[in-house]
């Protein structure tokens, strides 16, 4: 196991209202540590908006503009362009949204910002559903996962947001996980060093939404990564893919069996999910090999 290389800069405050044990708080802490003080965050309604806190408090030591659910990328574009025009080109503008605000209602604005290659860092906290409203399916919800709006399991697969963004040929796309803090920090640093639209998708196992133990978020995230259910990889300019080769891949079953949303899975369901994970992995690995 690698040692976490991390010195907290105190930019994420205690007293925030994330669920006890939520991995998004871990991710936010790392993000704020890396981006430093010269940043503005645009936050769509989401768990992130709640964690940032209600007026007059704030758990994050950068200014936050709370925007509407579908507008994160557009609002972030407005902030960045306005700061540039006022000579504050060095201020980093973050867009922070959940998967509902990214895969679903915010996709139109995100696609447009990516097409314009706006100089923003957009981070999606992907907990695979509308967890802040009590756990309904989004287009990020995986096949067969039970949610409030898919009580018998979702009939369709998770939308491939990464390939959609890669098709925009933006400078940088990466996936990250709270189980791999050094990797997340390195990807954030790389994203910040580049101009244009950067997109980071961070897996956030949702304690109530996925039905997992309060102390298991990081463990579940690690199983998602190690089984290949959530591969960690990067895409530069929409084409150059890099991913570490997988030495001893775990099966997906131990990852799924920790989650109540998959309690109803049959053996056949498990086999189908395993086959999907394997083929997705191979497809990414082939692209990495060709890059």
């Amino acid at each position: 196991m690698e040692q976490i290389n991390y010195t907290d800069q105190g930019r994420f405050c205690s007293g925030h209202v994330a669920c006890g044990g939520c991995a998004e708080a871990v991710a936010l802490r790392v993000i704020l540590n890396i981006v430093g003080p010269n940043a503005v965050a645009v936050v769509a309604p989401s768990c992130t908006a709640v964690i940032c806190g209600a007026w007059p408090g704030s758990s994050v030591k950068i200014p936050v503009f709370h925007t509407t659910l579908e507008s994160c990328a557009a609002s972030a574009s407005g902030v960045k362009r306005a700061l540039v025009k006022q000579g504050k080109d060095d201020t980093l503008v973050l867009g922070l949204a959940g998967d509902g605000g990214t895969y679903d209602i915010g996709l139109q604005a995100l696609s447009s910002a990516a097409e314009r290659n706006e100089d923003i860092l957009y981070i999606c906290f992907d907990n695979e559903g509308y967890m802040n409203t009590g756990g309904q399916k989004s287009s990020s919800t995986p096949l067969n996962a039970a949610t409030g709006s898919t009580p018998t399991g979702k009939a369709t697969r998770k939308k491939n947001i990464i390939d959609i963004l890669a098709a925009h040929r933006i400078p940088y796309i990466a996936t990250a996980s709270p189980s791999d803090i050094n990797d997340m920090a390195a990807k954030l640093k790389k994203a910040i060093s580049l101009r244009g639209t950067k997109f980071l998708s961070i897996l956030i196992p949702c304690l109530p939404g996925w039905g997992i133990a309060d102390d298991s978020a990081v463990k579940v995230a690690r199983l998602a990564v190690d089984s290949g259910a959530f591969p960690l990889f990067e895409i530069e300019d929409g084409v150059r893919v890099s991913m570490k080769p997988r030495d001893n891949p775990l099966p997906v079953a131990p990852y799924l069996k920790l989650q109540k949303r998959y309690l109803h899975l049959t053996d056949a369901d498990l086999e189908e999910i395993q086959a999907n994970v394997d083929s997705d992995w191979q497809r990414i690995q082939q692209r990495a090999d060709q890059s």
Binding site: E70, A74, S75, R81, A82, K85, Q108
Partner: peptide, 24 residues
Amino acid sequence: TEIITPESEHSALAASISASLTGA
């Protein structure tokens, strides 16, 4: 002026609001 050409009027106004709040 910074011209922004988004995909919809909705995003045009979203960008207008946040830009205005920076003092632009």
